[in-house]
Computed example of a mutant assay.
Amino acid sequence: MENAVIYNHLLTILDEKHIARDEYLKKHTYTKLGGKADFFVTPNRYEDVQKVVKLCHEQRIPLTLIGNGSNLIVRDGGIRGVVLSLANLNKITTDGTRVVAESGAAIIETSRKALAAKLSGLEFACGIPGTVGGAVFMNAGAYGGEIKDVLESILVVDKHGDLVKREAKDLDLAYRHSNISENGDIVLSATFQLKEGNYDEIKAIMDDLTFKRESKQPLEYPSCGSVFKRPPGYFAGKLIQDSDLQGTRIGGAEVSKKHAGFIVNVDNASATEYISLIQHVQKTVKEKFGVALEREVRIIGEEIEE
Rank of each mutant, 00 (worst) to 15 (best):
Y30Q: 09
I128L: 13
H259S: 13
R213A: 10
D185V: 10
N265I: 06
T94I: 12
S189N: 05
E182H: 10
G225D: 14
V187E: 09
V291D: 07
E273S: 03
V285R: 02
Q193K: 15
K212L: 12
R45H: 03
Q282G: 05
S215E: 07
C126N: 09
S226A: 12
Q193Y: 02
S189I: 00
K288S: 06
D244E: 09
H259R: 08
H57R: 15
E214I: 06
E214F: 04
E302Q: 15
I79A: 12
V297P: 03
G134Y: 00
T248D: 04
A140F: 04
L119R: 15
Y143V: 12
S111L: 12
I13D: 06
T191P: 08
K26P: 04
Y24T: 15
A114S: 11
D15A: 10
A20I: 02
Y175G: 07
I66T: 12
H57I: 01
R45I: 00
K229E: 02
I73K: 00
L10Q: 08
D48S: 08
L122R: 09
S189F: 01
V82H: 01
K26Q: 13
K113I: 15
V157I: 14
G67P: 00
K286W: 06
V187Y: 02
L245M: 14
G251M: 13
R60F: 10
E16P: 00
N268E: 08
G184E: 11
I278H: 05
K216L: 12
A117D: 10
N265G: 07
I79P: 07
V156K: 03
Y221R: 14
N71G: 07
F40I: 03
G69T: 10
L86W: 03
K286I: 01
D22R: 06
N198L: 03
P43C: 05
N139A: 07
M206D: 03
I128A: 12
K169N: 14
F228M: 07
R98P: 00
L194R: 09
L10K: 02
I250G: 14
D95W: 03
G81W: 02
I299Q: 05
H57S: 15
K113S: 10
V297D: 13
L122M: 06
H280F: 12
L33G: 14
K238Q: 15
Q246I: 12
E47H: 15
Q193E: 01
L163D: 10
V52K: 02
D200Y: 14
D38F: 00
E146R: 04
K216C: 08
S243I: 09
I66Y: 06
I128R: 02
D15L: 08
D267G: 03
Y7M: 12
Y234D: 15
G77H: 06
I92C: 04
G144P: 13
A168S: 15
D242G: 08
R298N: 15
L173F: 01
K212T: 09
E47G: 05
A260K: 00
M138K: 01
P222S: 08
E305N: 12
F40N: 05
R213D: 11
L25I: 13
